[in-house]
Computed example of a mutant assay.
Amino acid sequence: MTALTESTGAAVAAEAPFGTEVLAVRGCESLTAANAPRSVLHDPAEPWSPTNCYMDVWIGLTAALGLDPVPMLGAAFSADFLGDQWEFLKPRQEDLEVLYGLAVGEYDTWRPLGEHLQLAMSRGDALIVEVDAFHLPDTEGVSYGLEHTKTSIVPLRLDPAAGELLYLHNDGVHVLSGEDLENTLGPGARSGRVPYPYVELVRVAGVRRLEPRQLWQHTVELVRDHLRRAPGSSAGSEGPAQRLVTAIREHLPVLAERGMDYFHLYSFATTRQAGLTAGLAAHACRYLAAGAARWPSDLDAELLIEAAESFDAAAGAAKTLQFQLARAARGRTARVDTSADAFVAGHTAGMVAVREALGLGE
């Protein structure tokens, strides 16, 4: 290749960083922001919707592919408190493959991100990409044009001629265009907050749609696995809910000293993650209960409904506790005991009931 040809090729790549073909994730070819399916997990009435950026893209992606996201929520039962934060809830890769046939793994971005995006989407595969929310218009009023913060999106449909990208983020499907697209996934991203993003490849070719009973049966076994590895599952051990509220009580003076900017970071890592985990655990329990009532099994449907109600109570208590932490950060008196105790009681009762319902009680 001559120097002239090389320079011409570089110029073309710079002018068309996303190529020229319309590309889409398999099954999302006709998807738009208006017709995208919405999971019950993203109902605005849910106390913790949107959840967290990673769980949200999986809820949205499975829904976009015509799959039920609720069976993948087993990880909510094994989530732990890590000393300074509640575990950032993610569906396990093994669960996604067992339930849906979706293979997930880290993807090395050794070329310009736009080229990787074209290659993956040309095969119908999806990428989960870390980007800067500063350039995401769906975060208007929170991050868009205001604050540089890292989040995860899934590009679904790319139209280079129109200069538009349909993408999943938080609890919806949105459109990215113009300079925002350039600075999120194009050459402009290299000078931003996430110049070398962490990317995962979701291989969609092997997707499978199990019949409802088989899907439910697989979910039951995966939930049992999560319950076996759950923290605080042995007699006499302190559960993650109690450890969380103990840490929060000890941290109240720090909140009062550091103020609201610190509160937003702290609450996101603690009460928000714990609350959304409890809320999603409630959905999983109701799904299990519905199957136990429909098909013969050794599961106790009534106990699963009790577990769901306890987890719902814990999710609501975490929301109230978060309001109290905001009071503390503003220098006001924060009476956290009632909401903290309610969170512990709800989460603990939920875990006890779901273990017993699945035959794993003490």
Rank of each mutant, 00 (worst) to 15 (best):
L255Y: 05
R224Q: 09
V220W: 03
H226A: 11
R243I: 05
A235I: 14
G236M: 13
T270F: 04
A269V: 10
Q242E: 15
G279Q: 12
L255G: 02
A274P: 04
P212Q: 00
L252N: 05
R249Y: 11
V223F: 03
M260C: 09
M260K: 14
W216I: 00
L252D: 08
H264G: 01
R258T: 12
C285Q: 01
L252Q: 08
R213H: 09
C285V: 01
A269P: 05
I248N: 02
R258E: 14
L222A: 03
Q273S: 10
A235G: 15
M260R: 15
A247L: 12
D225E: 15
A269Y: 14
Q217V: 08
E211P: 14
R208E: 14
L255K: 04
Q217K: 08
G206K: 07
V220M: 05
H251T: 11
F263G: 01
A278Q: 09
A282R: 02
L227P: 06
M260I: 12
R286Q: 02
R249F: 11
H264W: 15
W216Y: 06
V245P: 02
P231V: 09
M260Q: 15
Q214P: 13
R243H: 11
R209Q: 10
D225C: 10
L227Y: 07
A235C: 13
F263C: 00
R272C: 10
I248W: 04
E221G: 06
A205I: 06
E257P: 02
H218I: 01
Q242F: 11
R272S: 12
I248G: 03
D225K: 14
R224K: 13
L288R: 06
P231K: 05
F268R: 14
G279F: 03
E221W: 04
L222M: 05
V254M: 14
L288V: 01
H251F: 13
R209S: 06
G206I: 04
G239C: 09
R213C: 06
V245F: 07
L244D: 02
H218M: 08
R243E: 12
A230D: 07
L288I: 04
V254K: 15
R228L: 15
V254G: 10
L210D: 03
P240C: 09
F268W: 10
E211S: 06
R229I: 07
E257M: 11
L276W: 10
Q217D: 10
L215N: 02
F268S: 08
R286G: 00
P212H: 00
E257C: 06
A230I: 09
A278S: 12
V204G: 02
A256Y: 11
Q242H: 14
E211T: 02
Q242S: 14
F268M: 13
H264M: 07
A241E: 09
A284R: 07
R209G: 02
G206V: 04
